[in-house]
Design a protein around this nucleic acid. Structure first.
Lengths: 239, 239
DNA sequence: CGTAGACTTGAACACTGTCAACTTGAGTGG
DNA sequence: CCACTCAAGTTGACAGTGTTCAAGTCTACG
C-alpha cells in the first residue's frame, strides 16, 4: 500500500510520520485525530505516473479519488473535434475528487512524473461521513476552487492574450512558492499553457517574446523564465 | 424576520410550513430534522430586491450568505476598465455563499425583481458546524457548481460565438424547467448574455438573428424565444 | 403618440488564429 | 565528443472571427 520512503514531499522523517504525511497532503493534519489520519492512510495506495500518462478519462466511472503527492497534473475537457480546454493544473497537496459525482467530468493527465495517493471512493466517502472535520476541510477546498474558477472565467471571457499570459505567469509563480529572484520553471509545454489560457500555441509564444523584448521577463531554455519586472508584468495582467 | 405569506416559491401552504419552506429552498429539507429546519428558518430574514439592485459588491466584507427564493440574480466580476464577466445566473433555490471566505469575490445584482433569505454568516456557520448533513449538502452544491464552472471554462476558452449562444439557450431551457413546446423567456438582457458568454452584445444579437434565419429558433418580442429545432440547435452547441 | 432604452444591422478594423517555414535544444548513437 | 534526429518552440504572412463604431429599428411605457 503506502511506501513511506517514496517521494513524500512534505515530511522526510520516520516511516510512520511519512505515512501520516500523505494524509497531511490533504491539509487535514490539523483537524483530524491521529486515529483518523491512520484510517485515511490505511485506505490510500501510492501510485506513480509517467509524464503524459492518464490517471482517468472524462466520462469514466468515478471509482477513485486522489491526492497528488508529487509532480504536476492537468485536468482537461475536450470537444468532439479535439479542441481542448485545460481547467486546471494540480500541484502537490491538491485533491482530485471534489467535482466528481458518479463519473469523472474531465480527464486527468500527468504533466511531469507524478505520484498520487489513490482512495477508493466508497471507502473515502465513508470516512468523510464519519469525520465531519474532514468534510469541512473538503468544503473549504471546494470554496477555493470555485473562487479560482471564477477568476479563470474572467480571464477566458474578458482578458486579452497579453493579460492572460501575464496573469498566468504571476499566479503560477505564487503557487510554486515564488522562489529565488523571480525564477520560474514552467512544468508544462506551450501547448498546455495555450489550452489553459484559451489561446493558440503561437499566440502564447509571440506574447512571451513580446514580454522578453520589453524587458519584463527573460527566457532561458524552453521552460525557465525569469520575471525581471514584476510590477510592469502585473500591470500587463490587468485588474 | 420571515413573512411566510410573501413570495414563497415552493409551498403556498400554511405559514409555518412556508417558513420551513424557505429552508427547503436550500434543498436540505430531506436531510434536516424539523428542529434544525426551524433553527435555520429562525436566523433567516426575507428581503426583496428591485431589478438592477445590488445585493453585495465584490470586495465587501462577507457578513451574510443568502438563498434565492424568487427571481433571478447575476454574479459578476469587473476589470478596472469596466470589462465585465458574469460568472453565473442564480435561480430560485440556489445558494449564495459557497465561494466566499471573508470577502465577497464577486458582485451580486438582481436581474429581475427577486427575494432572498439573508443569514448572518457567523450564525449560519455555527448552524452548519453543528449539522454535518447540512455541511454535506453544501459540499454537494459546491461540487455541482465546480462542474458547471468547468463547463463554462470550456465554453469561454474554446467555443465559437454560435456554439456559445446555442449552448446557453439549451442549458437555460433545462434550468428553467423546459416548459411548453420550447418556449423560453429570457430573464436577462442581451448585455447580460454577452457578458456571460464572453462576447459583445452585437455578436449575441447577430448570432440569434442567424439562428432565426436558419429556422432553429423564433423570436417574439425581446425576451421570448421559441426553440423550433432542438436537434439542430444542439448540433450548433458543439460537444 | 412620443420618448428612451434595448436591440438589430452594417461596414471597417483588429486581434488572434491558421498555415508554413525556420530555429532551438534535448536525447541518441556512432 | 560530435553529428543526427525529432519534438518543441519561434517567427512571419495572411485570413477570419468577433469587435468597434455608427446608424437605424423596435417596443414598452408614460
Amino acid at each position: 500500500m503506502l511506501d513511506p520512503r517514496e517521494s513524500c514531499t512534505v515530511c522526510r522523517g520516520a516511516p510512520i510520520d511519512c505515512a501520516v504525511c500523505r494524509v497531511k497532503e490533504l491539509a487535514i493534519c490539523a483537524v483530524l485525530s491521529d486515529e483518523a489520519r491512520r484510517e485515511l492512510a490505511a485506505i490510500g495506495a501510492s501510485s506513480r505516473l509517467e509524464t503524459g500518462e492518464t490517471l482517468f478519462y472524462e466520462g469514466d466511472s468515478a471509482t477513485e479519488v486522489f491526492t497528488l503527492t508529487s509532480g504536476v497534473l492537468k485536468l482537461y475537457k475536450l470537444l468532439q473535434d479535439g479542441r481542448r480546454q485545460i481547467t486546471g493544473f494540480l500541484l502537490p497537496g491538491d485533491f482530485l475528487g471534489l467535482a466528481f459525482a458518479d463519473r469523472y467530468i474531465c480527464t486527468a493527465e500527468a504533466v511531469t512524473v507524478a505520484t498520487v495517493c489513490r482512495f477508493r471512493r466508497p471507502a473515502f466517502l465513508r470516512l468523510v461521513h464519519s469525520h465531519p472535520r474532514l468534510e469541512h476541510d473538503l468544503l473549504s477546498r471546494a470554496t477555493s476552487e470555485l473562487a479560482a474558477a471564477q477568476e479563470q472565467m474572467l480571464l477566458l471571457g474578458r482578458k486579452t492574450a497579453a493579460e492572460r499570459v501575464a496573469s498566468f505567469l504571476l499566479k503560477l509563480e505564487t503557487r510554486l512558492g515564488g522562489a529565488d529572484g523571480g525564477r520560474l520553471d514552467l512544468p508544462m509545454t506551450r501547448t498546455d499553457m495555450a489550452d489553459f489560457l484559451g489561446l493558440t500555441i503561437e499566440t502564447v509564444s509571440r506574447t512571451l517574446s513580446q514580454f522578453r523584448r520589453r524587458g519584463l521577463i527573460a527566457l532561458s531554455g524552453k521552460s525557465t523564465i525569469f520575471i525581471c519586472d514584476r510590477e510592469r508584468l502585473a500591470a500587463c495582467a490587468g485588474g
